[in-house]
Nucleic acid binder design. Structure first.
Lengths: 249, 249
DNA sequence: TACCAATTGTGTAAAAAATACATGACCACT
DNA sequence: AGTGGTCATGTATTTTTTACACAATTGGTA
């Protein structure tokens, strides 16, 4: 006889009969607070930044935390994250994607709170005027410290996720103005991946991918010869994108 | 004056003062049931399979669902997933990784239940004797239908996740016996990725990665010339693994 | 015991992709 | 007019990927 004694009483009905009332079943489940936390990344002065807010918990006095909120009864997780994003930055049409859920029972000093981490990418200049709340701050990702909750871990995880993702998908453009020069693009990659890239090969590669539209304009206000400006053309990307396949590890 | 009226009352303290009692704060948060669901994959007869259980809800009569359970007060999410895995397969030391959290308010007929999906990989033969519970069933991933909850979506997501992951990391070995032939390995890749691969190039690639140990034995009970058996050597892999970097999309 | 079916094991040539690298022109600033 | 910083561009070399064929081994079967 097999020992099923360790199987939770929630896993199966005791007697093998079908459960008629799912509401009753679910109401017997233990419940927990759930939040979403947004790692909102921006790129400025050749550095990757993350938008943080001063914690309002006394135990985390003078520490920073991600922007987050509890989820509401009727909203999906992504909706909640998007709401946080909009409320704080005023921006809509912004890249947002779920990264990971953190559920360590001790991660919140007020009791168990499970949080779903989202990663968002936006162009800092597009909304810089909206951040006059001086509790909000763009913080360099390289020099994080003194974070509330487990938010340092969360940001590091999101940062690693971004590093990987930006090599496989055209996400980087979300961090730049609509029109950008190839130097800006290269600096973005160099900053996020923490590598040095050869300029000629970098250009060759992006031109070969063939989704950059020359907008016929040039950089302004740069203290050197201005470079051409380009736009990311999503349709071209979608049409030509390679079927990603390569065993390689 | 900025309009912060839409910002949730949970987001910040009203008056700008620091919150002294985090327990009180958290106890004001709405709560939800949280479950973990495990997409447990196995490989048999050259097919990717997933371990399913018959739903015990009457609304899902004769439908299949993933193995899952509610999380307990004091356990971390991964602990809960691991518990489900052990209880059902009797196996320990098994690959397990979080994939995504699903929180659609309507995904459970009994009310809102948020679930964290985990993906697990194991060798079917290692534990086939433990599945005499006839409510449990290895189901071909290619022919899913009639799943309870949103579990079809969840499995499809996990399957895509696996497809990508198996190309970047040596996960496939978890689905094979400790000693395997290169044909088995190739069939595994071909089944999961749904491609045909050139045998010589496949072998060349894996030998070049240099983490397969020839165990000096041969296949048995095959109706053709038996191939050499190999073991995956994790230490060698760790030592030689390439720093993964390539912009490519 | 001879043959068949299935699979093992092995290498090379051609094509494609990644890398390394230098120069003259342009613009702003002084 | 000179300087500092950047733009724009192409080629040769190396590395990686791909395509592809044949002899040998085993079990099964007539």
């Amino acid at each position: 006889m097999e020992d099923f004694s360790t199987i939770s009483r929630f896993t199966r009905s005791e007697n093998g009969k079908l459960i008629k009332n799912p509401r009753k079943l679910v109401s017997s489940y233990p419940t927990f607070p759930i939040t979403v936390d947004c790692a909102i990344f921006g790129f400025d002065e050749n550095e990757l930044k993350v938008l943080l807010i001063r914690s309002d918990l006394e135990v985390f006095k003078d520490q920073w935390s991600l922007l987050g909120d509890v989820i509401k009864d009727t909203e999906d997780l992504e909706e909640a994250a998007y709401r946080v994003l909009q409320q704080r930055t005023g921006m809509t049409n912004v890249f947002l994607e779920q990264v990971k859920t953190f559920g360590n029972p001790a991660r919140h000093p007020g009791g168990r709170v499970v949080t779903v981490a989202y990663c968002s990418l936006l162009n800092i200049r597009d909304h810089e005027l909206k951040i006059h709340d001086n509790e909000l701050h763009w913080h360099s990702v390289k020099s994080l410290c003194n974070m509330a909750f487990d938010h340092q871990t969360v940001i590091e995880y999101c940062n690693e996720w971004l590093k990987k993702r930006i090599q496989e998908n055209p996400l980087g453009f979300n961090l730049l103005p609509e029109k950008f020069s190839l130097r800006e693009l290269q600096h973005l990659y160099e900053a996020i991946l923490d590598v040095q890239l050869d300029r000629r090969n970098f250009r060759k590669k992006f031109f070969a991918m063939d989704f950059l539209d020359d907008v016929g304009e040039f950089e302004e206000d740069v203290p050197h010869r201005p470079g051409k400006l380009y736009k990311f053309n999503y349709e071209k990307y979608e049409k030509n994108k390679r079927k990603w396949f390569a065993i390689d590890f």
